[in-house]
Simulated scan of single mutants.
Amino acid sequence: MKTVNIITLVLVIIGGINWGLVGLFQFDLVAAIFGGQDALLARAVYVLVGVSAVWQLVPLFGAGHAGEAAAQRHHR
């Protein structure tokens, strides 16, 4: 599970950097590397980044629930 979390986190970071480049310079690095936004490989990367973002919600909410449980134990 840890390996999947690291891979998905890296992909989310890549996606964030790509969106930053799009916003700042109107330059889509993924499209430039893989042959345009409509290229199959570019679309695959976009999908993987999106799925990775959804996957990263799992540890985010898990950490939130763990923090709540720890806070409740400490409060007693």
Rank of each mutant, 00 (worst) to 15 (best):
V49L: 07
G15V: 02
F34Y: 14
A70T: 03
V4Q: 12
A39R: 00
A71E: 10
I13S: 06
R43S: 06
A66P: 03
L57D: 02
I14H: 02
V51M: 14
A44V: 15
A53S: 11
R73S: 09
V10W: 06
A71S: 10
A63L: 12
I13R: 07
W55P: 04
R76D: 14
L40N: 08
Q37L: 06
L24D: 03
A32R: 10
V10H: 00
G35D: 05
G67Q: 04
R43Q: 15
I6E: 11
G23C: 09
L60C: 10
I33F: 06
M1H: 11
T3W: 15
A69V: 13
A32E: 12
R73T: 08
L40H: 10
I14F: 10
P59T: 01
V49I: 15
V30W: 03
G23Y: 13
A69N: 07
I13L: 14
A53Y: 06
H74F: 11
A42T: 11
Q26M: 07
V49H: 03
G35V: 06
A31G: 08
V12S: 12
R76F: 04
G23V: 05
L11E: 00
P59M: 00
I13C: 12
L41N: 07
F34T: 01
L24C: 05
A69Y: 13
T8E: 01
L60G: 12
D28A: 05
R76Q: 13
A32L: 07
A71Y: 09
L40F: 15
A53I: 07
A39Y: 05
I6P: 08
A66H: 08
N18I: 00
I17S: 01
G50R: 06
P59Q: 05
Q37S: 10
P59E: 01
T8L: 04
M1G: 13
G35K: 02
L40C: 04
F34C: 00
L41E: 07
K2I: 15
G23N: 11
L9V: 05
I13F: 15
A42G: 04
H65M: 13
G16Y: 01
Q72K: 15
R73G: 00
L11G: 05
I17E: 03
L24R: 10
M1K: 11
G16V: 03
V4F: 15
V54A: 13
V45S: 01
A63F: 13
Q56E: 07
T8S: 14
I13T: 11
G50D: 04
K2L: 14
L9N: 10
G64V: 08
L48Q: 04
L41Q: 07
G15K: 02
A70W: 10
A71K: 13
G62A: 10
A44R: 09
Y46E: 04
L60P: 00
Y46T: 07
L9M: 11
G62W: 12
M1N: 08
A32N: 12
F61P: 01
W19P: 01
L29F: 14
G67T: 02
R76V: 11
T8A: 14
H65Q: 12
L21G: 08
V51N: 00
F25S: 05
G35R: 03
V58F: 12
V12Y: 00
